[in-house]
Computed example of a mutant assay.
Amino acid sequence: MSHQLLTIEVTRLDGGHIRLRLSGELDYDTAPELVTAVAELPGEGHQQLTIDLTGVSLCDSSGLSALLMAHRAAGSVRLTGVSAQVQQMLDRTGLTELLAVQTSAADGDNLRAIG
């Protein structure tokens, strides 16, 4: 069984927003990478952290834990690109109440990357 690595792309957006675009597997082996990436974000008081899960092929309980730790570290997290499997896990664990989940891709089109 081959293991797909996690890739995290960080983009600064208008209004102090930061987007992390994940691709690969968010699991026991890779979840610490997300926690580290969030911890290393500049402490400029970003108002919103968006985590785009569109490219995530697998998310287990360790991945959910990493999302929760990201929420605690950043203060405000919005998830986009949530698959049906991840949405079901968020619902079953009650994390939907804590993490904002964007259901429409069009909602995120308002955010522009800045240089």
Rank of each mutant, 00 (worst) to 15 (best):
V101M: 11
T50E: 04
L111C: 02
I114W: 00
T96Q: 14
A100D: 08
L34G: 04
R19E: 14
E40Q: 15
L13G: 08
L64G: 03
A70E: 09
T103K: 13
Q102W: 03
D109L: 11
G81M: 07
D60V: 06
I8K: 10
Q102C: 15
P32H: 05
G115A: 13
I18P: 03
P42H: 11
S61R: 11
V56P: 06
Q4F: 05
L64I: 11
D27G: 04
H71Y: 13
T50D: 08
L79H: 05
Q87R: 12
L22S: 08
E44G: 12
E40I: 01
P32E: 10
G108K: 05
A39M: 10
M89W: 03
E25Q: 12
E9R: 15
E33K: 11
C59N: 03
G108M: 13
A73D: 15
G24I: 06
Q4M: 14
C59D: 03
L90V: 07
L22E: 05
T11C: 05
T54S: 14
T54Y: 07
A66K: 10
E25D: 15
D107N: 11
L53W: 08
T54M: 03
T96A: 14
S2A: 13
H3P: 00
V86W: 00
A100H: 08
H3D: 12
V38E: 07
A66T: 10
L111P: 02
Q85S: 15
I8Y: 07
H46A: 03
D52R: 01
L13S: 04
S65I: 04
R112L: 15
Y28M: 13
D27F: 01
I51T: 04
L34R: 02
L13V: 07
I8H: 11
T93V: 10
A31H: 06
S61Q: 10
Q48G: 03
G63F: 00
A105V: 07
T50L: 15
R21W: 00
P32Q: 09
A105H: 07
T7Q: 15
Q87L: 05
E97Q: 14
Q88I: 00
D109Q: 14
E44C: 06
D29E: 14
S62P: 01
D52A: 05
L26P: 10
D27Y: 02
L67F: 04
G45S: 11
P32V: 06
L53G: 09
G24Q: 08
Q87G: 10
S2E: 14
G43T: 12
T80H: 05
T93M: 12
A106T: 14
E33S: 12
